[in-house]
């Protein structure tokens, strides 16, 4: 599976993002300093922003082709876990998890509430309110909620940003489980090069809204 960003341009007040690249999945990384446009790029892929120009294709599916076509986010089947996780604070863990679960869109029989809860080790937390969970637990709930919406692609925006090094170490195996157990391709955004070296097959380096390098993590992040 690949994601093609064909001369995609997003103009904001004092910033322009311009990307022309292909990301080979299952796990691709986007690396760059704060303000490089990483989150804006993910929001374009998720359909939360409309590009001013260019097209985005997930394999043969046209996600957007500005200005003519734009597939709304609810029809894209692109999961997105933002930095702040955005867990619904008024709902329990269970209600958060099943929010996006629709039997008709699930093609993989492993994507069931029971199995996802088991793999992400959430069984003890199901009836708790999400606001009462630790940072690492909230992170796993956000991953599981996105998995249960049966996405064709999952976007993770600096998922380890707010975690200490001990929790980061604990979370890495869960990311591999998403890839191996559920076979969901990932795009992983971070400004920490060490995370990408252990996780990604390919890395795109963004600076000031432009792609400055692309390749295998060991080469481009050395």
């Amino acid at each position: 599976m690949s994601l093609r960003l064909n001369n995609v341009r997003l103009s904001l007040a004092a910033f322009t993002l311009q990307v022309d690249a292909t990301l080979d999945l299952p796990i691709a990384g986007i690396f760059g300093p704060s303000g490089a446009g990483k989150t804006s790029l993910l929001e374009l892929i998720a359909g939360l922003r409309r590009p001013n120009a260019g097209s985005i294709l997930l394999d043969s599916t046209v996600l957007s082709d500005a200005p003519a076509s734009f597939l709304p986010p609810r029809l894209r089947r692109v999961g997105y876990v933002p930095q702040d996780l955005a867990l619904f604070p008024h709902l329990s863990v269970r209600a958060n998890l099943v929010y996006g679960f629709r039997v008709e869109t699930v093609e993989d029989e492993r994507v069931t509430l029971k199995h996802v809860v088991e793999v992400m080790e959430l069984a003890q937390l199901l009836d708790r309110n999400v606001t009462n969970l630790s940072g690492g637990e909230q992170q796993r709930v956000a991953f599981a909620r996105a998995i249960l919406s049966a996405p064709r692609l999952l976007l993770l925006d600096e998922p380890m940003n707010s975690l200490d090094s001990r929790l980061k170490q604990r979370l890495v195996p869960f990311l591999f489980r998403i890839r191996d157990e559920f076979r969901i391709p990932l795009i992983y955004v971070t400004h920490d090069a060490s995370e990408l070296k252990s996780l990604c097959d390919e890395v795109l380096i963004l600076e000031d809204g432009r792609v400055v390098e692309r390749g295998v993590p060991a080469d481009v992040l050395s």
């Binding site: 609810r74 029809l75 089947r77 929010y99 996006g100």
Partner: peptide, 20 residues
């Protein structure tokens, strides 16, 4: 952000209004 994420989870605008 809650409404945006609900959209990526496949919810319709009416469902987002009702549930979020």
């Amino acid at each position: 952000r809650f409404e945006e994420i609900a959209r990526t989870l496949g919810a319709s605008e009416w469902r987002i209004f009702r549930t979020i």
